[in-house]
Design a protein around this nucleic acid. Sequence first.
DNA 1: TTGTAGGCGTTATCAG
DNA 2: CTGATAACGCCTACAA
Lengths: 335, 335
Amino acid sequence: MIKKNKNNRITLQDVANQVGITKMTASRYLRNPKAVAAKTGEKIAQAIEELGYIENKAPAMLSKASSRAIGVLIPSLSNQIFSALVHGIEAVTKAHGYETLLAHFSYDEHEEEQRIAALLAYQVDGLILTASQHTPRTLQMIRNAGIPVVEAMELPPNPIDMVVGLDHIQASFEVVNMMIASGKRSIAYFGARLDSRTKLRMTGFDNAMTAAGLPLIHVLTGEHSSYSLAAKLLDQALAQHPTLDGVFCTNDDIAIGTLLRAQQLGLKVPDDLAVVGYNALDIGQSVLPKLTSVDTPRFAIGQKSAELLLAKLRGEAIESTIVDMGYRITDGASH
Amino acid sequence: MIKKNKNNRITLQDVANQVGITKMTASRYLRNPKAVAAKTGEKIAQAIEELGYIENKAPAMLSKASSRAIGVLIPSLSNQIFSALVHGIEAVTKAHGYETLLAHFSYDEHEEEQRIAALLAYQVDGLILTASQHTPRTLQMIRNAGIPVVEAMELPPNPIDMVVGLDHIQASFEVVNMMIASGKRSIAYFGARLDSRTKLRMTGFDNAMTAAGLPLIHVLTGEHSSYSLAAKLLDQALAQHPTLDGVFCTNDDIAIGTLLRAQQLGLKVPDDLAVVGYNALDIGQSVLPKLTSVDTPRFAIGQKSAELLLAKLRGEAIESTIVDMGYRITDGASH
DNA sequence: TTGTAGGCGTTATCAG
DNA sequence: CTGATAACGCCTACAA
């Protein structure tokens, strides 16, 4: 009969009892199997297997300086961008034996604050954030925790600590200039769910249009972006601006919805209406014409963010605490 | 100067020192502000604010039976289905003051095993899983932990504990019968990333086709589903089966990609080719004709899963440990 | 209303 | 190579 503790979970003591040693030896074996006698090690391994022992993170969180876990905050669980970012992060953290605690906050600063408090309660050694806007209390909590932080995706002007991102204003400026160079004159910006990146892209759009002496047309909504929402935005834009000949969209979901709607209305893309997206999702390759979009290196941003964070945790010198990972404009045919 | 402990994080002792009381009183205040004198409470609140004290989960994980956290495992971070499931779960857990620890495993049983071990190391009180296939070691770990488990999304024949899902075989059977009733005779099943739900839907497809005396056409790939992958699948299917007049897809991503590709090839949907999807994502409403799909109540499944789990944690009697949440076939026009 | 003592599971440290 | 002891931060139980 297997003895269990109050929590009904197997402890190192149970393993030690089974083998007839002290938990100290079992503990040593777990961290470094060669630190105990080969014979003892074998018995311990067998007991662990037999009892189904699972590590307990609590004591480490309680007593050690490091919990060997980092927290990652993403705005949304259904966005391929952040999925790729997380995969990039985990490619690095796994290789270094770090746990990744994931939390999402639905693009809400106060929700972010609560999730960060929860992650800090789990004693994470570092944080990777994906927004550049934080509540004062969030900033205070992070300061108090005294842990390294990476803000990923953007290049915020007043970073908390380290930054790995790209210049969304510049990328938007460049791609809108391409649209203007194609002869488009009445271009609208379609924005949804007004998060910080949506605003940066709008700034880039505004800069390009203003520089060309063209009017600014903004069609914005606070709703979560979706394909069907895009159709509504286009209908609205065409009603107000019948001469509309181009749309720069804050993301590919909006862009695809706009493109499909335009084609349903009998508009030729890009001749009658240019449509440009952002993020270069796969679906942009499945429509005709292929979608012109801004490709962002989110996997690489994740990797670099994790590398910077772990380097700082190891106390290594960081060459640059602000890293611009750049972007690429895809050669679509929709602009 | 604020005193900090070894971990450099503020503890209740720091708060108590600041006020000139013992940490016990501060602890009491946190759990129930009315348990201490009003004046003391005010001072404690002020000190907590001033020092930026954040709860530490470690002692609770270490000493109490309950960590007030549950673990949730999802296969993918970029799938709206699981995003909705998680939102449903959190709607319930938040209301009950439970933390949700999220992990993803990329549709890989062994990755799932590792993530479950990690969640158990964090002393979660319960688990919500989204797959019905688990490694033997996963099952053993869960048994050893002795915590309640909900398997969500499917109705597995040999459940670990509780189940909240729907009958994918029946849903697929029904929708394929609709295609047959529309006069389609040469229908293919498009499957990607062969997870358990893909297989269940294929079984439903097979059942319907066999019952109608029609041939089984399977076009499968182990790749992650995407719009552009769907185009390849359709090209392949048409090459092998020139008389193809219908496609039942394992999900809407594949279905939309198939529909767009069919239209690019000049095929009329549904007259030349019927296309039916699964999950009823928003994009199905943005294409013409609107996509016929199977709508699954994933938010409600999340809610119900969390409710069952918390009820069991409270020791309440559960009426039924297997809950079928049903499905609905959308009235699209693509079949 | 507030304080004291002890314990949760693991590991650093020091002994053997 | 292995063992004993103390410590981590909080909470339960008991005491004042």
